[in-house]
């Protein structure tokens, strides 16, 4: 056997075997770290752990809802029963009769008080509620009035809207062993929402009917992990 071949054989076959053997022998004993974890290591571990907590574990897509035609975003769930969700969406408004497509961004806070298991893999959430802040990008929209106006001239922001919604959901567990699966749970939802300006109009006008101030949206939530 040439040295070059036996060298690779040693590295790839014998070394792992030896280490495995060592592990088997050591498994009955308490593992003793040779190197003491330094303060630096602890800090790095803590740093990684903290940042892991902000990795979004939800992906959502939504159609309509006064936050864009289609919106997609990421989210986080938390709470004892994972009853809280916070999402950040980006969406777009098609040009229609205006000259251009507009981008939107939405920060959404959801509260899902109950989840009822119907089958081992199917659950319904009879109530989902929450509010969302939507902002639309473009020079024609402002948060504070431009300087050309006297102070307090319009007293509202054309850029930021506050929406409230009520909705329902149904969720399905997915076999993560499936070739195509990228989530372990998929939830379908619909929401009925309204926003600040329309609520203000609806309160003071009998003329406005629910179809004038309510808006419907549908969407899907993918629970990644």
């Amino acid at each position: 056997m040439k040295w070059s071949i036996s060298k690779y054989l040693f590295i790839f076959v014998l070394l792992p075997l030896m280490s495995l053997n060592a592990q088997v022998r050591d498994s009955s004993r308490v593992y003793q770290s040779v190197v003491k974890e330094s303060h630096y290591d602890k800090r790095v571990h803590r740093y990684r752990k903290n940042w892991e907590a902000v990795i979004p574990n939800i992906v959502k897509v939504q159609y309509a809802g006064n936050m864009g035609m289609f919106s997609a975003g990421v989210g986080w769930d938390y709470g004892k029963r994972r009853q809280w969700e916070t999402d950040l969406y980006f969406g777009f408004i098609p040009p229609h009769s205006s000259g251009k497509t507009k981008m939107t961004m939405t920060l959404k806070q959801d509260y899902i008080p109950w989840s009822i298991q119907l089958k081992p893999s199917v659950a319904i959430e009879p109530l989902a509620t929450g509010l969302y802040l939507n902002t639309v990008f473009g020079d024609e929209f402002w948060t504070h009035e431009p300087e050309r106006y006297p102070k307090g001239y319009y007293q509202f922001s054309s850029r930021v809207r506050i929406h409230v919604y009520l909705g329902q959901r149904v969720s399905f567990n997915v076999h993560t062993t499936d070739f195509w699966s990228f989530a372990r749970n998929i939830t379908l939802f619909y929401e009925v929402s309204s926003y600040d300006l329309m609520i203000a109009s609806a309160v003071s006008n009998h003329y406005l009917k629910p179809k004038d101030y309510l808006s419907l949206s549908v969407g899907a939530k993918f629970l990644l992990f």
Binding site: I93, K102, V136, S158, L197
Partner: peptide
């Protein structure tokens, strides 16, 4: 069922 209930945005210029 409800096409006109799907609103994209208050400033969606859909006439």
């Amino acid at each position: 069922c409800a096409c006109d209930l799907f609103d994209y945005h208050p400033y969606d210029v859909k006439i």
